[in-house]
Nucleic acid binder design. Structure first.
Lengths: 242, 242
DNA sequence: GCCGCGATTTGACCGGCGTCAAAGCCCCCG
DNA sequence: CGGGGGCTTTGACGCCGGTCAAATCGCGGC
């Protein structure tokens, strides 16, 4: 163990060098030699689709970074209504730092690989590596900006506008030019999860998508998640009314 | 100028020593001697009630910390619907770091004193003082947690529940025991601002408050902002239904 | 192919909250 | 003391989106 630490201090651990999330995760702040500090406390973990990484109310022992896959972060009311308050993609940091108890539930939207760390050890590592702390600050600020945009959507936009905004986000994140001049996007989550993300119900989401299809703005290929956006400008017009 | 910097490097600038926000602002991370770094780039500024510190869409030149007073951070749609996405109190940091353009509008809810900094200079100071950066990270994480709680409220709670939650927040923040065994709270903002904060309309806020009064849960003294909570447990029960 | 199950879509209905309007209240100022 | 303007309350009404229910689709297993 000690020996391994010493050797890996001079060259990055193999698991890290081949890591798909390296480069856009917090690890990017670490020089190859420093990675051993994280490597020593990190464990790889695979999370099957649907399974929770942790539950709101549990003691908050672990944090992680997403290596591959997607997670949702949800908050819920005492009677079970649920709101997705964040989505996490490869490279994103997972967890609530500096808090003894978790207030949010994190679970996998599809099969997901994580690099998990004991929270206490991670926080210590953070203190020792200001570059990593700085990177985390930037990410947290981005997440906060995102959260604020979603507060506007949840508080002030109607169902049509929320759907349009969501689809435009997907265009930006996953859009690829389609044959017919439209843009093909993946919709990586179920209707129910879209509803939880947008603060709507499944039925409303489905109806709105049907209307957009009827209006010739969207087209669905049968039997797959995803669709192609035929008239992006129309979505923009819905999102930003005069 | 240079001379002043040198002298103040050995003892904290007088303005900082007497600052009411010292101790719970980012400055708390600075030893007395370090404060000159902030002092040199900071300017005091007084903002009359209602006036904006900056507008969404402007170049993002300045940030600040709140010395005294209260600010609101608002996001709005292209057609003018407005959502308050944050409230700022003495000691809180004001501004969107690492962004060239402001996406949010910040304005004073009452007469407010700020200590403002050019954003670029502040970011440089941050780099030189990891303790301050760490404090900012903690605050940003708290703000993110708060934002997520508000997403749940805006996305999944009805008007009654939002009002109850808001009042309970005020009890925690400003509550003082009242003569009749109730808790006296200050409501430091107008009905319109409450509505913007809660994602409701003025009329709905007013109606809900009237209902709580009729139910004997709240009592309003005539002619002042504020009220006393007679039955806090009832508010809890509204916020967390079975 | 056929069945069964979950996800999605569609329909009917209704209630909460937004909208529009008017009245009331408070405070400032003359 | 009276008048005016802004904030707040209250009322009437309509619509959006939630609820309940049923039909349809998609897919895997046998």
């Amino acid at each position: 163990m000690l020996l391994q630490d010493r050797t890996s201090a001079s060259c990055a651990p193999a698991r890290c060098l081949s890591c798909k999330a390296r480069g856009n995760s917090l690890c990017a702040a670490m020089a190859d030699g420093e990675l051993s500090a994280l490597h020593a406390i990190g464990r790889r973990r695979n999370l099957p689709a649907g399974q929770a990484f942790n539950w709101a109310g549990d003691r908050n022992h672990h944090c992680a970074t997403v290596v591959e896959g997607m997670l949702k972060v949800t908050a819920s009311t005492s009677d079970g209504r649920e709101q997705i308050v964040g989505l996490l993609f490869p490279g994103d940091f997972v967890g609530e730092l500096f808090a003894d108890d978790a207030t949010l539930t994190v679970s996998a939207l599809c099969e997901t690989d994580l690099c998990t760390y004991p929270r206490a050890a991670f926080e210590r590592t953070l203190e020792d590596h200001p570059r990593m702390e700085r990177l985390l600050l930037r990410r947290t600020l981005l997440a906060l900006g995102d959260a604020r945009g979603r507060m506007l959507a949840l508080g002030r936009r109607n169902a049509r506008e929320r759907i349009a905004g969501f689809l435009l986000d997907l265009v930006e994140r996953t859009g690829r030019p389609a044959a017919n001049g439209g843009t093909r996007i993946a919709i990586p989550i179920s209707r129910g999860e879209m509803a939880d993300y947008l603060g709507l119900t499944i039925e409303t989401v489905s109806r709105q998508l049907s209307q957009l299809k009827a209006a010739g703005i969207l087209a669905f290929a049968k039997g797959d998640r995803g669709c192609t956006v035929l008239r992006e400008a129309s979505l923009q017009a819905i999102l930003n009314p005069a």
